[in-house]
Design a protein around this nucleic acid. Structure first.
Lengths: 194, 194
DNA sequence: ATGAATCATGTCATGGTCTGACAGCATTGG
DNA sequence: CCAATGCTGTCAGACCATGACATGATTCAT
């Protein structure tokens, strides 16, 4: 509520925007924290006070997705049932994220700059950890199952996103929900009914 | 074959051993490339000539697994059939890797030092990329399917490995094949027959 | 064996990421 | 108005990584 909080939010956003601007203009490798700081008009040190790393400045993490997944409840008690629910949460979150303008920018950069994809992927480690430990905490699953579930959910998210990014890069205006559904359908095809 | 090659191989091994020694002794964060170099008895610059990054010095990559997966052929032409074959290759490679002494050391470190797990995971990006592009190249699969397959295979490997690492850390002497099979079984359970 | 080509290494210089310490200025609240 | 708190800049430094160049060892053809 305080003016302090607003300031912080604006700063976080400004830094990310500046970072994305610069990467679009001159590529990831040749964009330094010093430049980002200069563009925002603050010192380099200050940028590091808002984002712990260059990675996070570019891709602030999947906190929205993490919250949605961790906060979700499942009526099911079998691994497959829980997976279904988690994927449904992902699906919804996915179409929600696509609304964010920066999400689209990052998506395009993921294809333009291969290193950008690695940045995004690095950030996803915390998603797996948060989700798997949340699942263990719920009590319905064992450690191995939870980890596997978290990995599968994250992989689905990543593949759907990359698929979306490719379309976005190609100028194809695809529906995120359809895209996510297609990904999940292909995933299920890997495990036939027999 | 020359003496040059032997020298190189010995050097690679010595550096990795030194790196692992130091991480075991004093943790990952406080182990610098300078120390590793000093332990081996060469200059820091030289270490970077053998390993492109600190990560790779600690975890030289999954080249064995990549080669096995990329080089494998599959009689099947459906995504699920190919997945089955790839998992079989993984399974074999897994029990093979466990024979390597350093694999066990790294496994234990993965549990002791959370950051070490991230190091390993970072290295796995190239596995996904190599495998998915190899699958596309084989011609049987589309891009989305290939990526999905590569992600699922990699995730299985990672989960099985982490499971093994936990046992290793706990002093449980488990059979790698059994462990891998169990992982795959749990994975299949996520996708019920209906 | 000798000389040229190749290779491994060391040294030096540099750029970039990230952290800690401290001091100054602004905001807030009593 | 004063004191506490918070934000920022500056400075210093550790560490990772890369490029350029010189040097000494190894290899190989002659």
């Amino acid at each position: 509520m305080g003016i302090r909080e607003e300031h912080r939010v604006r700063m976080l956003r400004d830094i990310q925007r500046a970072a994305l601007d610069l990467v679009e203009e001159q590529g990831l490798e040749s964009t330094t924290m010093g430049e980002i700081a200069a563009r925002v008009g603050v010192s380099e040190r200050t940028v590091f006070r808002y984002y712990a790393s260059k990675d996070q400045a570019l891709m602030p993490g999947q906190q929205g997705l993490i919250d949605a997944l961790v906060g979700s409840e499942s009526a099911h008690h079998t691994p497959s049932g829980i997976l279904e629910d988690l994927l449904a949460v992902c699906r919804e979150q996915f179409s929600h994220e696509v609304e964010q303008r920066d999400f689209r920018r990052i998506s395009r950069l993921m294809i333009q700059e291969p290193e950008m994809l690695r940045v995004v992927t690095r950030q996803e480690r915390s998603l797996v950890e948060a989700l798997s430990s949340a699942l263990v905490h719920r009590g319905a699953l064992e450690s191995l199952q939870s980890l596997l579930l978290a990995e599968v959910v994250t992989a689905s998210w990543r593949v759907a996103w990359r698929s979306f990014a490719q379309d976005e890069y190609d100028g194809v205006d695809s529906d995120p929900l359809t895209l996510f559904d297609q990904t999940v359908r292909e995933l299920r095809q890997l495990f036939p009914s027999t």
